[in-house]
Design a protein around this nucleic acid. Structure first.
Lengths: 221, 221
DNA sequence: CCCATTAAATACTAATCGGTACAAAATAGA
DNA sequence: TCTATTTTGTACCGATTAGTATTTAATGGG
């Protein structure tokens, strides 16, 4: 395994402004990246050889190396795209005040356990799969994963803080601790989804797990 | 990948009774199996090539094939050994009535999150790692994993039933549903352990997760 | 029209993979 | 000692891997 510690695709992008002579680009970076993201999402990162990835993406290997610097850079770019397309939505949703806390929890559970074709298809969640492989990722993708985990926790924590200040969440628990807990539960649900666990089981597990967030007197269901 | 659908190592074992002429066995099956179990435990199943496994176990490749039939059989045998050495203990412990329900929960949490060198070392838990790779296992190992999951759930369910009949666990929740929940939480904790998550975080997550099992009026701590 | 320049893909490398033929080693009986 | 038998390990197979050198294609400028 060889790693490029300096960005590669980006350097090309910033030089894209000027296009003098030379063979014009035919490689569609956007298409490749979207296909790669879906591919890793369904098959799992590091589950396919780079040869096989190139075969499925219908791109020559040197093209992939030139454009992404290798597997590490490609995985990092895929995770970025996944974040932009799916995870940002989730965290944006949690930061809105349109719905009450309880409804938000239900929505999240539905989004994971249901058959909605959002960030959680039958394939599970790409970010969860990336996190599961964190120790085998290259330095670039691993750094992205770690940043994503920090962003996750930050989002959950502010979500919890807001609910506590609104009085819709018990205040006898530390927000940071709860954020870790929520992250672990969301991770677990997505992980089960990716393993093919039945949606009803995932839902009942998640409902139980999130029930600790409810106010003691709201212990109904 | 080639799979042997009929037991191989066992057939040899039963024929062991008679030893007429021929080169005497020098291969130490027990040693190989124990080393392989620890190896897969720490490195993860399917994470090493069979060549590398043979290298580390200091066994020639044909010997491994002859003795275990290949990777699939070896993994299955390792999982069996892990069950016998570690997981049986856990489930035996849950089925005893020496300690009250609450204490048992605490013990389980300690066993996972602590530094105890039981079934959960820093490497995590072999059965959890096997379950995580279930879809990539061969038919023999996968069948073992599925049997193990059934045994897990059965054990948790009877544990829960007993606690409910003793009045130490709220009875407004279905034992089967709770068993799934407990399994998911134990799985999650072990998974985090294997990922290198800090023990204190694992412990606080687990404490929160198991707090739903407590009686409503026991909501202290 | 030719050349410099840029991008693309072919074709190659050494290494490793899963799996196995086959030969070497080590015994018991003849 | 010789042979049949069983185990072990070497040495090989074709396929695949990560990564790259090299060639080919396609353009704009001179």
């Amino acid at each position: 395994m060889k790693y490029h510690l300096q960005p590669i695709g980006t350097k090309m992008s910033e030089a894209k402004k000027k296009r003098s002579r030379g063979r014009p680009r035919s490689l569609d970076r956007t298409r490749i990246l979207e296909d790669a993201m879906r591919l890793y999402w369904h098959e799992g990162p590091l589950r396919l050889s780079l040869n096989e990835v190139c075969r499925r993406l219908e791109i020559a290997k040197p093209g992939l190396y030139r454009e992404f610097g290798g597997e590490d850079g490609l995985l990092a770019a895929c995770l970025d795209l996944y974040w932009d397309l799916y995870m940002k939505r989730l965290h944006d949703f949690l930061s809105t005040t349109d719905q009450p806390f309880l409804k938000q929890i239900e929505s999240v559970i539905d989004a994971i356990a249901g058959e909605v074709s959002g960030m959680a298809t039958d394939a599970g969640c790409l970010s969860v799969k990336m996190r599961s492989e964190r120790n085998r990722l290259g330095p670039i993708a691993r750094a992205r994963v770690e940043q994503l985990e920090r962003d996750n926790l930050t989002s959950y924590e502010s979500w919890i803080r807001r609910a506590q200040s609104e009085g819709t969440l018990r205040v006898d628990l530390d927000p940071s601790t709860l954020a870790s807990y929520v992250d672990a539960q969301v991770f677990s649900a997505f992980h089960q989804k990716g393993q093919g666990v039945d949606g009803d089981i995932i839902r009942s597990n998640a409902k139980l797990a999130f029930s600790i967030l409810l106010l003691p007197e709201t212990g109904k269901d």
